[in-house]
């Protein structure tokens, strides 16, 4: 697993709602390499978010295994997963999900606070990250005072502050206009180059897909194809 950072094998996820069984994932296999931007592409309800949640250890698969950097996270307990996520996985959600009562810099340093890093050290690290990402002028603003694009960039800063192995993004441009979506993808490329983080992005936005080195096409809980980003856009632009 030298260059592999994520390896998911035969993932099955079945939701039971009363008498109704919904198979959200049906035998999905996925690999992600270190430092790549990997897309998971599919229409709404195809199982993208479910797959992302299982890779991120937020949800357990009904069947199958997930390895992240040689750790089988599907075997970890709830509290072990919490610790694992804190150190190894960053999350970026569609609705930014910053803590509204905290300032930008406090939001960014949040994972460091949870790790028990001292106040001075975490403020220094958060400020450095914000400076590098061109957000330092917004450090003391409240999330509500930022634009959607800025909030999403702050969410990315928060996701990478602990230097995680992977960053999982669920529809990161879902709440942005196309101009902001393009700017965000440039920003993600910059972060990837600077920090060498692996991004796994669930999306159906062609602007995002175009920037992905590889993209898995997901439909009805199954991968139907694996393409590079541009090819995926050309073939599945109407997903």
């Amino acid at each position: 697993m030298d260059n592999l950072i994520v390896k998911a094998e035969n993932l099955v996820k079945i939701y039971q709602s009363g008498k109704v069984r919904v198979k959200a994932l049906d035998g999905v296999n996925l690999i992600a390499h270190r430092g790549e931007i990997l897309g998971i592409i599919g229409p709404s309800g195809s199982g993208k978010t479910t797959l992302l949640n299982i890779i991120g250890g937020l949800d357990k698969p009904t069947k199958g295994t997930v390895f992240i950097d040689n750790t089988e996270i599907t075997k970890l307990s709830e509290e072990e997963l919490v610790k694992f996520r804190l150190r190894n996985i960053g999350f970026v959600f569609q609705f930014f999900n910053l803590i509204p009562s905290l300032s930008v810099v406090e939001n960014v340093e949040l994972p460091l606070a949870l790790l028990g890093v001292s106040r001075i050290e975490r403020r220094e690290l958060a400020s450095t990250t914000l400076r590098e990402l061109g957000l330092i002028h917004r450090a003391n603003f409240k999330p509500s005072e930022l634009s959607g694009g800025e909030q999403q960039r702050v969410a990315i800063a928060r996701a990478i502050i602990t230097n995680p192995k992977i960053v999982l993004m669920d529809e990161p441009t879902g709440n942005l206009d196309s101009e902001n979506a393009k700017n965000l993808m440039k920003f993600i490329e910059k972060v990837q180059e600077k920090y060498g983080v692996t991004f796994i992005i669930a999306t159906h936005d062609p602007i995002v897909v175009r920037q992905c080195e590889r993209a898995y096409i997901l439909r009805d809980g199954r991968f139907i194809e694996e393409l590079n980003g541009q090819a995926a856009v050309n073939k599945y632009s109407k997903l």
Partner: peptide, 16 residues
């Protein structure tokens, strides 16, 4: 609830 969910997702233990 959502804020707590986010905190738990990014690594806050139930104790925290």
């Amino acid at each position: 609830m959502r804020e707590i969910g986010i905190l738990r997702a990014i690594g806050a233990s139930s104790r925290t």
